[in-house]
């Protein structure tokens, strides 16, 4: 959390890139200078009294020069307000926050598994993995073809719940047979998505004895550990809960109970 800043950032653009899914681009050389894949920002969309009270946390989807990119679903008042931001308007951003993916671990192939908007942290991770010359296979699952986001990802395998594109079924079903391939070398899973998906994936990783890191979502107020609002149960001795904002949002599945 060493590079954390709070600043008003200029919006570069905000576009609907899939059904109800927006790509928000804003400028912050301070955030791009220190952000690592898996970290998030906590964004205040509106002035006091003009929208929700609390900030909303979003994974950093990608950095591009001085530009930070976020993917989000416009589903509530806060995200709807954010989706209406136009070039030149400002947003109040706190970040980068939390822990990043541990990309330097010992593995040959990165297996990225994302459910829905859970794809958000992976363009950033992919860019980093490419620099490290890791092999990447990406599995993304969506409800239907209208929601698909695949920009800046590598070797993409798609599943849709309704079969409108790619594999007909969920992303874990698509992913599981792939693990039996023998050409992966040592693999590591990076995943983000609904809790049920992460839970299934965590059990699969345990069965196959593969290291698995997940990015969690949590109801939080501050994003920095002040409010203690976002606990996740942890395994082992020591304190019962970790905080999604400060100890996460990235966790090894062996460290937490989903």
């Amino acid at each position: 959390m060493c590079g954390m800043v709070q600043q008003l950032c200029k919006v570069e653009s905000c576009d609907e890139v899939a059904a109800k899914t927006f790509l928000l681009r804003f400028a912050s050389s301070e955030i791009t200078a220190s952000a690592q894949p898996g970290q998030f920002v906590n964004v205040l969309a509106a002035e006091a009294g003009e929208g929700p009270l609390l900030r909303r946390p979003f994974s950093i989807a990608r950095v591009d020069g001085d530009i930070v990119e976020l993917f989000f679903h416009a589903i509530g008042t806060g995200t709807l307000l954010l989706s209406r931001k136009r070039h030149g308007e400002t947003i109040d951003v706190l970040g980068p926050l939390g822990q990043s993916f541990r990309v330097d671990a010992d593995y040959d192939t990165a297996l990225i598994v994302a459910g829905g908007i859970g794809v958000a942290p992976f363009p950033f991770l992919t860019a980093d993995l490419l620099k490290r010359c890791k092999r990447i296979e990406t599995f993304v699952g969506y409800r239907n073809a209208g929601q698909i986001l695949t920009s800046h990802l590598q070797n993409i395998h798609i599943a849709t719940d309704d079969g409108s594109k790619g594999f007909h079924g969920n992303v874990v079903q698509l992913f599981e047979p792939f693990l039996d391939r023998t050409d992966l070398g040592k693999a590591k899973i990076f995943a983000c998505g609904p809790t049920v998906m992460l839970k299934a994936l965590s059990e699969l990783a345990k069965r196959k004895n593969i290291c698995c890191e997940v990015s969690l979502e949590g109801h939080m107020a501050c994003g920095v550990g002040l409010c203690q609002g976002c606990p996740v149960e942890r395994t082992g001795d020591g304190s019962k809960y970790a905080l999604v904002c400060k100890d996460g949002p990235i966790f090894l599945t062996t460290d937490i109970i989903l």
């Binding site: 009270l53 109801h219 203690q228």
Partner: peptide
């Protein structure tokens, strides 16, 4: 003694405010 606090969900945003049940973690 240290207190672990309450299980999630501990926070809900409400109109111009928030509800918490941190449980004195």
């Amino acid at each position: 003694k240290p207190r672990a606090g309450n299980p999630p969900q501990r926070i809900v945003e409400t109109a111009s405010g928030m509800l918490n049940s941190i449980g004195l973690a």
